[in-house]
Design a protein around this nucleic acid. Structure first.
Lengths: 210, 210, 210, 210
DNA sequence: AATGAATGAGTGTTCATTCAT
DNA sequence: TATGAATGAACACTCATTCAT
């Protein structure tokens, strides 16, 4: 478990895992609402349904909560993304399908992604480094999809840039919802983004062709 | 002045403007370094070269400082962007040149954009609404460039989405620098992003054509 | 046992005694290092090798631990001192030998004596009274040595004062070690202190006489 | 001022001095009663007649208060002791008179001395070192008196030990008052201690001689 | 108009103690 | 008997804001 980075004074490891899950759950709800800084450790404890003392049996500092949250979100995103990725049967269709899945995932997890987005900066150097490394891995997943599925004329560098673009476009649906979600439905958004993308890759897609 | 939204007990409006400029200047430096929440009003006052009491003659709450900062950054970006935009002579070349200017601007102001990016959420509802409205205007500028310069087969909706994509790609250079600026020089970044974009718009650009 | 002053929920008196011995042992080590206030009950339990729950089966409050410790130290000091005292053969030599033993004992137990010294004040009234009573007994032992061994022209009051002086000079070797143990070896310290003392008692001692 | 070691955010140095005097005064009262650890910063603030916020304008940590207190006590003791010391006219009488003054001073300041005594250990390394250095200076004062006033056959080492003995006998009057002050009046205590001392120094004093 | 000392609610964190298992 | 998870009162310290000068 990646969470071993955070020390707990509780011995029962199963309990630790369970309580931390609760903590993440409660904290996400609060961080969404008011952000990390405006959320109190007491509020977190209350939201989780236990006392402040108990909270501190499972973490050492408030920042640990943020780390737990961020780590958990990353974990979920990667897990769910991995399910969708099929590198065995590379094809343009497969690529498009993966993209769609990715966008839908980002829609589904927009609140969490927002937190990822806005609060990572509040982590201390060491944790931040760790978290960014994880994000690199996630972008790497998209990158691999690009490299695998695309006609071979795309350079590794371009693949990486593309992956970053896609990654941010996915996040953008959430963090710019105030402008995007008023203009587009999710389906439209996905469709249009894919349409913009394909020509640059030399693909001609059904949806738009005619 | 948009800053009229913030009340000061000082009568001399020129002085108010001057002091607030100082405030923004000092605050930006600090917010870059430590973010809004970790910056103290005392520190702001000190950085500005006056006392905490004086600071509070020109603002009412700490949040006012953030608003001033965000507003000022927006203002600068828009102003500098406006200089670059030439809607009189629409053409693909013009479009590309504008994009390049935009990306360079975003590079130049990455620190400020980061603040915009990470701290707007800390504004209260009312201020946030106002700020987001301003951002809408900025995206609108890009949108207009797209609409004006592009072959007429692009729909208004697509123009808006494109503008958002571009806007975020500009920001992304700054807020994902830990990954992008290790892989690309600014010139490369601009070049590749434009290359990805053009085919989707039906343009064939020099750099890549053959 | 004097420890009956502290209530335990455990019935088996032998076990209680054994556990308390463990507690004292562990606590002394910790109190030396960090003092009573900076030592945690959890740390004490851990040092003793059992759980916090178990610790509280044998004591009722943290203060009880301190009492146990202080009482135990007193006990040891008295026991070891008693061994050395020989009231059957009073003489100046005997007196001097006893003093020397006493100083050596105080050197040997300086850490413990330091605890006695610095933490007794943290006991509550009742316990403190009890502990001070014990200390009175210890001083009484020295007093008796003085009275017994000394040429009879020393008054009871003077004997008591003298005993106090000696007692404190013994402790002082430990609690002022930062100044004394840089200047003197133990042997020197003992020798000099005794030399200062004797003339006041009308004794002429070998070491110095000529 | 030695208090420059502690940083304050208040600019007016006179005010700082005044407030810190208040702090010392209030804190001494509380430390006497309940010791350093059992005294709350809020209690200190209240005792001083200002708010917790104000207290922290003049110190940085609770330990600073202790340092201020200890330093102030040392300062007073030294000052008052210095007044009494007359190195210009060395003589046994002068020596005895100085001792008497010293004992009376220690009686007068017993509460403060007790604090010095019991709480210095709670200071952090650096402060403790500083404080012990000051104490060394104080012992040095007594030492000089001994050296100056005494018949020249006393060695420097013996002078130092003697000074330490005297110093501790002075303190002892306070910290062992539960036993000493029940047996002796101050005058008696002084008289007896001096009587014990003199023969060791080769002096024959009026009081006892015949 | 400028200053900076004063305020106190609020924050993260600790730790002695309890009690169900 | 032994365990250790749970508790929450209590603590040191911060900082936005006010207001008398």
């Amino acid at each position: 478990m990646t969470q071993d980075r955070i020390v707990s004074s509780i011995k029962d490891q199963e309990l630790v895992a369970k309580r931390r899950q609760q903590i993440v759950q409660g904290a996400v709800r609060l961080f969404r609402e008011k952000g990390f800084h405006r959320t109190t450790t007491r509020e977190i404890a209350k939201e989780c349904g236990f006392s402040i003392g108990t909270l501190y049996e499972y973490i050492r500092t408030k920042e640990d909560v943020l780390f737990l949250v961020v780590d958990s979100i990353h974990h979920q995103v990667r897990e769910r993304l991995e399910e969708k990725i099929d590198l065995q049967n590379p094809s343009a269709e497969n690529f498009i399908a993966t993209l769609e899945s990715f966008f839908r995932l980002m829609d589904d997890m927009q609140e969490e992604v927002l937190i990822l987005y806005q609060e990572v900066k509040s982590l201390k150097r060491e944790s931040k480094r760790y978290v960014l490394e994880k994000e690199r891995l996630m972008v790497g997943m998209l990158e691999r999809v690009v490299v695998t599925c695309m006609p071979d004329d795309i350079s590794p560098q371009d693949a990486r840039l593309l992956a970053n673009n896609l990654f941010v476009q996915g996040q953008m649906w959430g963090f710019r919802r105030w402008i995007l979600q008023k203009q587009f439905t999710l389906d439209e958004y996905i469709e249009r983004q894919i349409q913009f993308l394909l020509p640059g890759l030399g693909i001609v897609h059904k949806g738009r062709e005619l």
